[in-house]
Amino acid sequence: MAEKSDSISIKNWSHKDQPREKLRDKGKSTLSDAELIAIILGSGNRDESAVALSQRILASVNHNLNELGKLTLKQLMAFKGIGEAKAISILAMMELGRRRRGEEALKKQKISSSVSVFELMQPVIGELPHEEFWIIYLNNSNKVIQKHQLSKGGITGTLVDVRLVLKNALEVGAVALILVHNHPSGTLKPSEADKNLTQKLKTAAASLDIKVLDHLIITEKAYFSFADEQCL
């Protein structure tokens, strides 16, 4: 996975084009997205610096970091100057950012609104190309006991076993549930299957004195809340 030695090394850049020194001397917040990525890359190619290469990669996704995070190893390696090692470094960087968002949301463990559910789960399932169904188990203070992936499906659907949902609720001592799944298509409109499943789980949980507080459909940038829309 070694990169070609004919690339422009970071030590040979002009002073104004040295993001490592800029970060050291002026702080990380002063760097552009391209400069931060350039530090990860370390070098560009024969014709351009790492900053210029990073700018070109960002331009391909309209300077949107969320879109950058969706690029595959193969797509990254299509850029001149990006070999396997650099592509993997970019993927690792984006994954760390995604995990940090998830951890920051998890610190706000008390669920107070549909927004807090979205903040917790969007980094997990909001950008997936397939559908996943998750259950958030809560205690009597509406604090998260556990978030659990119940099933993973294809582009258009996933299967949910009500018995497994309630079995796990009893095992962790949950008194309330929030259902969450994503729509890779981007549509926020619940299907009839979504509505039927929500009512089925609500009825089954009620028999065990467990409340279903909400069901969220999550996309990359938005969500639909059954509770907010009075569909529960």
Rank of each mutant, 00 (worst) to 15 (best):
I135H: 06
T203Q: 03
L128T: 08
T219R: 10
L208S: 02
R46P: 04
H15W: 05
H148T: 11
E131H: 11
M94S: 11
R99F: 08
S7L: 00
A87Q: 04
E220P: 03
E192K: 11
V124R: 13
D228E: 12
E220C: 10
L23Y: 04
R24K: 13
G83S: 09
H215R: 11
A2I: 14
G173N: 00
N66C: 14
A50D: 09
L91A: 01
H148N: 04
L208Y: 00
A204S: 14
S113C: 09
A227P: 07
G154T: 13
K152I: 15
K200S: 10
A52M: 02
E48Y: 07
H183Y: 04
A92R: 15
D214K: 00
G42W: 05
K143F: 15
N168K: 12
Q75Y: 08
V160Y: 00
L58Y: 07
I37Q: 02
S7H: 10
M121T: 06
P19M: 08
P129D: 12
I136V: 14
H183I: 08
G153A: 13
V162R: 06
K195R: 15
D6N: 12
V61P: 01
V162D: 12
Q122P: 14
H130T: 15
D209I: 05
N139M: 01
T219D: 04
V160I: 11
E127R: 13
K221S: 15
S89A: 14
H63N: 15
T203L: 01
R56K: 10
G83M: 03
M93S: 02
N64M: 13
F224H: 15
L120W: 07
I155W: 06
I39G: 02
D33Y: 01
K167F: 05
P123D: 03
S225A: 14
N142G: 03
G154V: 09
D228M: 07
A176Y: 00
L91T: 07
K16N: 05
G69E: 14
S60H: 09
E21M: 00
S49M: 01
K107I: 12
L138Q: 07
V172C: 13
F224C: 14
R163Q: 15
L216G: 05
T30K: 07
K108V: 07
T30Q: 03
K26S: 06
H148R: 11
S14A: 12
A206T: 04
I88T: 08
F226D: 09
R99T: 04
M93Y: 01
V115K: 03
A204E: 12
L197S: 11
L53I: 02
E3S: 07
M77Q: 13
L188Q: 08
L65W: 12
K80S: 12
E132C: 09
I136M: 00
K200M: 10
K11G: 01
R46K: 08
K110V: 06
T187G: 04
S185N: 06
G102Q: 05
E48S: 02
S54M: 05
G69T: 09
N182T: 02
L31M: 00
L68I: 04
A204I: 13
Q230M: 15
I40H: 07
K147G: 12
G97A: 09
S5G: 03
G69M: 12
